[in-house]
Design a protein around this nucleic acid. Structure first.
Lengths: 255, 255
DNA sequence: CCAAAAGTGTTTTATATACACCCATGA
DNA sequence: TCATGGGTGTATATAAAACACTTTTGG
């Protein structure tokens, strides 16, 4: 595609990291799509859309969720991550990405199609230097580089294998996303919205686990409750048919 | 792929909050310019520029600094704040702002001109609900609203007085900026770059003071040192000709 | 009554706050 | 040697971490 428009400004792209939680595997997930167009044809990538003239970026992010998963959400589930404008991030044309994160209250089945050849949930894990996302067959990981310049310097030189790497700078964007969520875990854990309206403390610890790179049973429930009870509101008790004392349920406290 | 038509995507604007420190008044300052074109002609505003096709947003922010103050800076003095895309933020045309912050190592004299009818330093203070910025004649303040929707709802209805209010949503952008700096004061106080290469603990406390909404002498030097010494590197002692023990000087520790 | 799941309490340790005291310099 | 500016130390309060213990359910 040839540059450019009259204004000589880059294209504006919305990139959305869509988070969910699988209550059977107790794992945090993100949505990845397999690209069906150039550039990076055949690569897995974060869902993207171009921004339209008569919408805000937040609205575009929500439209993307509706297009990909057919789920209408309120703005309270979406937040801005950052804007990525490095010149090396797109081959050929200049495109900048406004990155958002959406926290789905459940994990819907994915329909095929919608402009991509495939769309799947990838469950989150962690390694020493990075976070991992796997669908059982393929595993991708967040960028290792710690600074933007380091990342793009490597990135521009590399010829990426589509079975090991995501399209564009999406491994960098994902790194920024995971770091951001981790930093907000102790004062504004919006990531818990993936648990739906109510959750138990164990649910919450299972969400925290990969971000803290700590197994769930290593996160002490007593201490966890004490340090986070300002963030949660008690909503009563569950009635589940299983051995053991029923757990209390909480919701995120209003800021 | 759509979007190559300029009518289908908003304009991209770079807004830069340029911070400095006045060593005679011991006050933190920001640069404001008086607009000389529509919209908001005659209003004071944050410095802005349109983004060019062959530059990153970070480069555009640095170009803006060079145009406004004639100072060539490295990227390490600039950081991204957020991107503002609300539909109500610009009358008529849709324009989104990529907001950056630049921390100048000193406070240069401002030359007139450069596309604005005036450009001045405004020194920072604080009131109960907001931060204030004054040049001695006029005082502007950061937005009072606590959420984005609240701010823009009020903003769209108001007919703003140019002697009391900044152009566009700049009072909101400034609020986000001050809040961000405040939050990072205890783990990544880049705002201290306004003090130049070296600074004393008292200098640092004078920068912290308005963000914490606390008078300098209420910030205990002993405790301040203990809780921030991981962030600072000792660089020796000053030799100033004034009564009192010479202060140690520090620089920001490398992350 | 036992095992499983969850919640409570206590001790230890680290960090934050308040405040008293000591040191180095110029006049 | 005194006032001024700056650094050091201690005692107290508060919060974090580790871990032992009690409660509630199903079988």
């Amino acid at each position: 595609m040839a540059a450019s428009n009259i204004l000589e400004q880059p294209f504006i792209n919305i990139t959305n990291i869509i988070w969910s939680f699988d209550h059977t595997t107790n794992r945090v997930n993100i949505l990845l799509v397999k690209r069906d167009n150039q550039p990076y044809n055949g690569y897995w990538a974060l869902p993207e859309t171009f921004m339209r003239f008569q919408e805000s970026a937040d609205e575009a992010a929500l439209r993307l969720v509706k297009e990909k998963i057919g789920m209408a959400l309120s703005g309270s589930h979406t937040e801005q991550l950052a804007t990525f404008t490095n010149k090396l991030r797109t081959p050929g044309d200049r495109t900048l990405s406004l990155a958002y994160m959406t926290f789905l209250p459940d994990k819907p089945q994915l329909k095929a199609g919608y402009g991509a050849s495939d769309a799947r949930w990838f469950s989150m894990g962690y390694a020493d230097n990075c976070y991992t996302f796997s669908d059982g067959q393929q595993t991708f990981q967040t960028a290792i580089s710690s600074t933007e310049t380091m990342f793009y310097a490597k990135f521009a030189k590399a010829n990426l294998d589509p079975t090991k790497h995501l399209a564009f700078d999406h491994e960098w964007i994902l790194k920024i996303a995971c770091d951001r969520i981790r930093n907000k875990l102790d004062y504004q854990p919006n990531i818990l919205l993936v648990l739906g309206a109510k959750f138990t403390l164990k649910d919450a610890r299972m969400v925290y686990s990969p971000f803290l790179k700590t197994p769930v049973n290593k996160i002490d429930n007593s201490n966890f409750k004490k340090s986070h009870n300002k963030l949660f509101t008690d909503m009563g008790t569950t009635t589940e048919n299983r051995p053991g004392r029923p757990a209390r349920v909480y919701k995120l406290a209003a800021l």
